[in-house]
Design a protein around this nucleic acid. Sequence first.
DNA 1: GATGAATGAGAGTTCATTCAT
DNA 2: CATGAATGAACTCTCATTCAT
Lengths: 210, 210, 210, 210
Amino acid sequence: MNVSKDVAGNRRERRKEETRQRLIEAALSLMQEKPFEQISVEEITERADVAKGTFFNYFPTKEHLLMAYMQEMVEEVYEFLEQLHPESAESQWEVLRQVMRVIAEHDGRSLALTRSMFAACCHNDHLRQMVASMIEEATQHALMGFQKGQATGEFRQDVSARDLAHYAVRLYRICLMEWIMENDSTPLPELVEQTLEFFKPAFLNQEVRK
Amino acid sequence: MNVSKDVAGNRRERRKEETRQRLIEAALSLMQEKPFEQISVEEITERADVAKGTFFNYFPTKEHLLMAYMQEMVEEVYEFLEQLHPESAESQWEVLRQVMRVIAEHDGRSLALTRSMFAACCHNDHLRQMVASMIEEATQHALMGFQKGQATGEFRQDVSARDLAHYAVRLYRICLMEWIMENDSTPLPELVEQTLEFFKPAFLNQEVRK
Amino acid sequence: MNVSKDVAGNRRERRKEETRQRLIEAALSLMQEKPFEQISVEEITERADVAKGTFFNYFPTKEHLLMAYMQEMVEEVYEFLEQLHPESAESQWEVLRQVMRVIAEHDGRSLALTRSMFAACCHNDHLRQMVASMIEEATQHALMGFQKGQATGEFRQDVSARDLAHYAVRLYRICLMEWIMENDSTPLPELVEQTLEFFKPAFLNQEVRK
Amino acid sequence: MNVSKDVAGNRRERRKEETRQRLIEAALSLMQEKPFEQISVEEITERADVAKGTFFNYFPTKEHLLMAYMQEMVEEVYEFLEQLHPESAESQWEVLRQVMRVIAEHDGRSLALTRSMFAACCHNDHLRQMVASMIEEATQHALMGFQKGQATGEFRQDVSARDLAHYAVRLYRICLMEWIMENDSTPLPELVEQTLEFFKPAFLNQEVRK
DNA sequence: GATGAATGAGAGTTCATTCAT
DNA sequence: CATGAATGAACTCTCATTCAT
């Protein structure tokens, strides 16, 4: 009986989690079409194929869905960063480039969604905070690479590794922004590639720098 | 009678223009408090001290006000750029820095407003187009400086002046974005200063670059 | 031109007042059918034959309608009391009886409405306050009668005229309550008549009784 | 096995009754905070620490809980009245006063709850019926006292004992109503005391008065 | 051109009730 | 019998826009 109860409980929980995901995905899919604020709860539930009221069993407020999604994204990013094992690489710059490319490929899949999230961040302190912590995490991670690179003389040494990491992350973000602001976009990964290439001199050691 | 009519017509036109400005300013002032979409026409007209219906005598749609304002901004920027006479300067990099500082001081006055405009751009193709043309204009302008700087050997020559200009403008925009995304912001001009300083090596000529 | 404007303004104002009254009356008519809380704004506007949104041009909240109505009632009662000229009467008790009868006839027209107002008062401090001030006003008015009656020896003198007035008003209210709580009601005026008759000894001077 | 079944059955029944009581008490406790209609089933079940669905195993409808509670109150009052043995008293008026005081002390404990019940009665025929039967019961009981009192000459004899009882009960109810309608209430027992004192002459035999 | 009352679609949210587990 | 996820009708309130004055 315990067992059957557990199993049943699990099924229920699974179903619950599934509905939650359905709601989030419905919202994401709609955000490809228009900004979050213009999406009604009803549209979301319709696309998720649940009743309108069900929405509020999962998210006390429409806004909470966005934050829940962002939370998932944050966790995903953390996991991704943890799985990286860049020690094996010969050039840290190369590592940076490759990591950024992977992220760019991920982010680059949906222009509309990224725009929606961006706009949402403009108006929402919580969301901004979450993004900030994601960025901090990424910066921390990059920091290690830059420290190694500074040690080997690959990177410039007249600024702190922290600053290098910081500006590297910014570089990625400018690409993201550039991308969502253009009407006829180059694919994000390319944009990143070009931008990195251009700004490389600001990171690498120049033999003759005094 | 012709004359008096003209005079009357002028007064009328002046008043009309004045009301228009009052509406725009009311909207801007409200955008310091909350995003554009959360501002109602009634709030705007109330602050502008006109009747609700009057709004639609000036802007066919709430959204048109935003575009009208952006149009004004564009024109303002154009005027500003035309008034610059940077030929007299000895270092083009210095010119760039000073121009950016002036712009940053201008933009830096209202965080909330800038956020609002940013978010609006995310959702509005027209607005984005306007911003794009502003940026293009700015890039054009910067181009001249970089051409001179390349000629004197001040700037790197392994990339086109166009690219230099392009990335310089991007650099400004990343600062803008960074600024609106932080919750506890450094003043925009400082941010610009620091960022420029960091990325300087990506623009300047390095004696020993092969 | 001034004149025509004024006339137009007046027409507008008249229409506005008319709509307001229509809304109030629609609400009252619905309150004969069910308690206020169970009436939706839509029902009210439908019966008043205006659009749903119009309601909120007149009352910021559904509740405000009730208070507006109560305000009107209060003013009506004040006016009524002012118009009374009971000085001419020979017996103050008779005056009291007649006044109560008039009021009872007025209140007695709608059982359901009175119930609704009563219930609303239970939950609403503002409403209660208004009722309280109405009652105070009525008490003040009754006070004068009782003072005269005490002077002529018609009323008992071992309690203050204030108390006499106070309890007289209470007596009316108990009838009102009794009336709304019965399922098969005697008409309110009769109820008042009987009740007054029964409690007369508590007001009149003893000596007079045989 | 029969036995164990019975025992188990008893336990089950005890638990069932207990849950029922918990639900009722939870509702009552909430009614101290806001009117019944504004209380959701979920709030009740939460406070009773059972699942939402459980509620409907005990009461087919939210409203039924109120009636169930009222039923309990009715029975309680019946029991209370039965336990009274007022024969021993010398003055029936004194008996009346003391009984009313006891009831007033009971009712006087929760203003908000009393208001809630009152309002509920306004809208609910069943509830009103129950109250009516409670009142009838009380009146019946009072009747005996008044008969005795009339026999001894304590009470006036120009009206029926039935009427005396009737108006005595009304007197209590007016106090109750007065109490819930005031914003700054005198304690109910005091109110009752004062009111009884004032209206005494309407009950007692005249000759007896000094 | 200015006014502001009227409009009505639509928003987010609540909640009594049902029912599969 | 307990559970709590699902339901969907109903709610109050907002607001861009229209239009008669």
